[in-house]
């Protein structure tokens, strides 16, 4: 198969590294070649962060470039909009509707943009938006936003629910597994594609 490109974007500290770890593990188990490229260090301190996941028969570049992403998964609404130009024509955005003010907004110098979901749709992007924070709270831990989003994301892959659960079990600490399984289910069931 042709290489499929996924981007996981968000704000440093939101748990995108765990999400990419689970996804990478799953894809490898499904028998594909896979590369996952992460951001560590300074950018992690509340900055805009991106993780690239590429898989297929043989993957070379570890990066996804502009106009190449099949799916952009975003932990935060503004970040979905920021990285949208990386989406390929007809590509899918799956985004948390949570808004985290960046420093220029915190300082009152700029406004948080309004109606971003509509604006992205106007530009031709398919957008699946849901309030993951609320669902994470419902699952029992607001930190499980990343797993809620994975549950949602699973609709855009041909992998079985069972395979997703195995990946979750292998990468989440045992004592947090129940909460994370609940979070995944809530994300999974939150409406159709």
């Amino acid at each position: 198969m042709d290489t499929r490109n996924i981007m996981i974007v968000g704000v440093g500290g939101q748990g995108s590294l765990l999400a990419s770890k689970i996804l990478g593990y799953l894809i490898l188990n499904e028998g594909f070649d896979v590369k996952v490229s992460e951001v560590h260090g300074m950018s992690q301190r509340g900055g805009s962060v991106v993780t690239y996941v590429r898989y297929g028969d043989r993957v070379y570049s570890p990066l996804v470039d502009e106009g190449e992403a099949d799916v952009i998964v975003s932990f935060e609404l503004l970040e979905a909009a920021r990285w949208m130009k990386y989406l390929k024509s007809g590509g899918q955005i799956v985004t948390n509707t949570q808004q985290i003010d960046p420093m220029p907004v915190v300082m009152g110098v700029e406004e948080y943009p309004e109606n971003l979901v509509e604006k992205m749709r106007d530009k031709g992007a398919k957008v699946d938006a849901l309030d993951c924070l609320k669902l994470a709270e419902e699952a029992g831990n607001i930190k499980a936003v990343n797993i809620v989003l994975l549950g949602r994301l699973s609709h855009y892959f041909d992998f079985s629910k069972d395979a997703w659960m195995k990946a979750l079990e292998a990468n989440v600490p045992a004592k947090l597994l129940d909460i994370n399984k609940r979070a995944f289910d809530l994300g999974f069931k939150a409406g159709g594609k």
Binding site: V11, G12, G13, M42, S43, Q44, R45, G46, G47, S48, D65, E66, G67, E68, A69, L78, E79, A81, R82, M84, K85, Y86, L87, K88, S89, P102, M103, P104, V105, E110, E111, Y112, P113, L116, K119, M120, K123, G124, A125
Partner: peptide, 20 residues
């Protein structure tokens, strides 16, 4: 040929790293 995507028209607020 380079691959190209579509951006929103407006300028979005930057999100630089910050002290936690």
């Amino acid at each position: 040929e380079e691959h190209k995507g579509t951006a929103l028209d407006e300028k979005l607020p930057v999100r630089p790293p910050a002290m936690c």
